[in-house]
Design a protein around this nucleic acid. Sequence first.
DNA 1: TCCGCAATTATGTCTGCACATATTTTCGAG
DNA 2: CTCGAAAATATGTGCAGACATAATTGCGGA
Lengths: 235, 235
Amino acid sequence: MSKLETKTWQGVRAEVQRRIRSRAWKPGDAIPFEADLAREFGCARATVNRALRDLAEAGLLERKRRSGTRVALHPTGRAVLDIPLIRKEVEAAGQAYGYELLSKALDAAPPHVVAGMERSDAAHLVHVVALHRADERPHVLEDRWIDPASVPDAATADFSTKSPNEWLLENVPFTRSELAIRALPADPDTAGSLDVAEGTAILTLDRATWLEGRPVTFVRLLHGADHVIRSSVTA
Amino acid sequence: MSKLETKTWQGVRAEVQRRIRSRAWKPGDAIPFEADLAREFGCARATVNRALRDLAEAGLLERKRRSGTRVALHPTGRAVLDIPLIRKEVEAAGQAYGYELLSKALDAAPPHVVAGMERSDAAHLVHVVALHRADERPHVLEDRWIDPASVPDAATADFSTKSPNEWLLENVPFTRSELAIRALPADPDTAGSLDVAEGTAILTLDRATWLEGRPVTFVRLLHGADHVIRSSVTA
DNA sequence: TCCGCAATTATGTCTGCACATATTTTCGAG
DNA sequence: CTCGAAAATATGTGCAGACATAATTGCGGA
């Protein structure tokens, strides 16, 4: 019937998206088979496949072998957070970036108990505390532990001018990382470093990273007042 | 030389990833052309293309036409947050889900000033406040505004048993949404509803959604004590 | 009736080939 | 020497066909 002749996978995706949004295909409905859509659109099945795969990745469709494809019941909201270097984040906001090393210890005790960070030799970590500034004002307090077993250079690295945040990203690969975002009240030390009142709500970002199952580093980023993590979703 | 014969795009991706992690290909380096890799791996160029495209999406590679492909300088940290239904989130944690409508107003004033939410007819919004519980304890306070111009059914919808969170997701499509995560101190009302002390650090999630440029809804989710947003990244 | 093996079938992926597109590079005109 | 058009080239995408894989279905035997 239709002489749509879409031909490009983006075109197919757009048309399918339109049918979902217009409720021609309702949530939970099964949609036509790839082969049928290919015939309708006048393109190859591979092209339809590419489009549907993309929409499935975006959470709009659910696909199962042999069963077919259906419109997702609850479009799984999915936000992509960019986690830039703190320096780049500050510079991108048009502010002057400043950095200051507050402390570095070689044989530090294990960090505060953190879910998902079961270290083997917890007694010999490198512990670095550093402050990132934006336009002279405290921006982020970086509280980092590094496992020297995974990162031998960490013990001798000079963190006085380049932050661990940046140094690690450039020098140490990782295979997996976990992220946890919390709202915590500022403890006295944190409050002092960030120049806020004790107990202030602090947006806290914990990240643990591993290389092939071995712990590499754990960092807690304590953000200054009114910090916002933003993300936009196009789906 | 190598008789790797990888054949599958996941295999190619794994091998390329290995070379990046082992620093055989260093950040900033250009890697071999698709055609060359295809010859080395003994597979079709399309297969290599699929693998490299996937790695580029993950932020490990940067590709430009005619220029070739190179290893990303700063593996762009990128976390994917799943934003599930609150009900599903609670149930997934093995807790009993409870829901209670606290208030519904038809011609509400515009919400607190929110960046990115410039409404046209700000004086006629539907305003719903509802509480989500987990095991009887307050879990999330949902503070939502809906634009009836975009969602006519919102005025008559019954939010006493099904949350706006869930109702909107099932009934209203959207094209774009923006997300902001903050840490805010609990104001008296919020503290009362969530059963926490006033001033407690609250993990706050603001989301604004549009359909083809028209505002649909704005919601502020105020999370109870110790709430954590988690995400794991495999790259 | 119930269980498990086998046929079925929709999606997943690979291949080889072709052409499109975006850059870079080259090279000639002024 | 400079500028701009034309050639070169790596990635992006499309096509048709084939086989792989995972569910589902249905059949047959106990």
